[in-house]
Write a protein that binds this DNA or RNA. Structure first.
Lengths: 118, 118
DNA sequence: TGTAGTGTGTAGTATATACTCTACATATGG
DNA sequence: CCATATGTAGAGTATATACTACACACTACA
């Protein structure tokens, strides 16, 4: 699971690198604010995935969805957690009940909520 | 915020203690599997809230909602996180969109989902 | 009066998290 | 051929998390 994260990041980066030299491991590492050797180890799954902040920076640079990247790292973004913590009962119930709903049904709910007639 | 957690636990425990001697700090601590001195500090907000497992045990003993207790401790239960991580995009969007919905509207969605016509 | 139970203070610990720092070997381009 | 850049190896570090272990003082009650 941690390995998957690294592999995926490496794949994304290599793709970017094919188009722009700004995406060498070293340069990217510096841009996201970590040591190259660290990013190297992360990409090869030799180190656990980085912190939420670092993953967010990574997502920005790689044009990836931060929530997806965080999920691969076994995390849930802290802003989502904060929302849940404000109304724990309500959200806990909702999420557990949606656990086994198929994607299309969840999406329908999302749309319903977004177009909010509430 | 961490203080609030301890205060609340103490309040719950004292209420139980008024009815049953099984709820002395010491006995409860042993039952949930920690040292009494530790629980003491937690209740007085002198130590950060305990781990998820310990909070869950606490909730069981005190007949409290584990999600609520966890929320007071600044955490979100790991099973909820796991559900979110399986479909990060979907759930992230849903939760963020529900952030500002009033309780009754959220509840309506919960009911709708529970009575699932999907 | 002693002993059993109560809560608390102080110090210490094991493990995890999230990295840095330095050095190295290889490759690449001018 | 040499300067620069690339990825990687190994060791070390600072901070947080989640506790334990032990000693102490107070109270109740038999």
């Amino acid at each position: 699971m941690a390995a998957e994260f690294g592999e995926y990041v490496r794949k994304c980066r290599e793709q970017k690198k094919a188009k722009s030299a700004d995406f060498s491991l070293r340069k990217l590492a510096i841009r996201i604010g970590v040591e190259p050797s660290y990013l190297s180890k992360v990409e090869r799954g030799q180190e656990a995935p980085p912190s939420e902040a670092t993953i967010a920076a990574l997502a920005r640079e790689l044009d990836e969805d931060p929530d997806v990247l965080l999920a691969m790292a076994g995390k849930v973004s802290s802003d989502l957690q904060r929302i849940i913590r404000k109304r724990p009962k309500l959200f806990a119930q909702l999420i557990r009940e949606m656990k086994n709903m198929p994607n299309h049904a969840v999406l329908r709910v999302v749309r319903e909520v977004r177009d909010g007639d509430w």
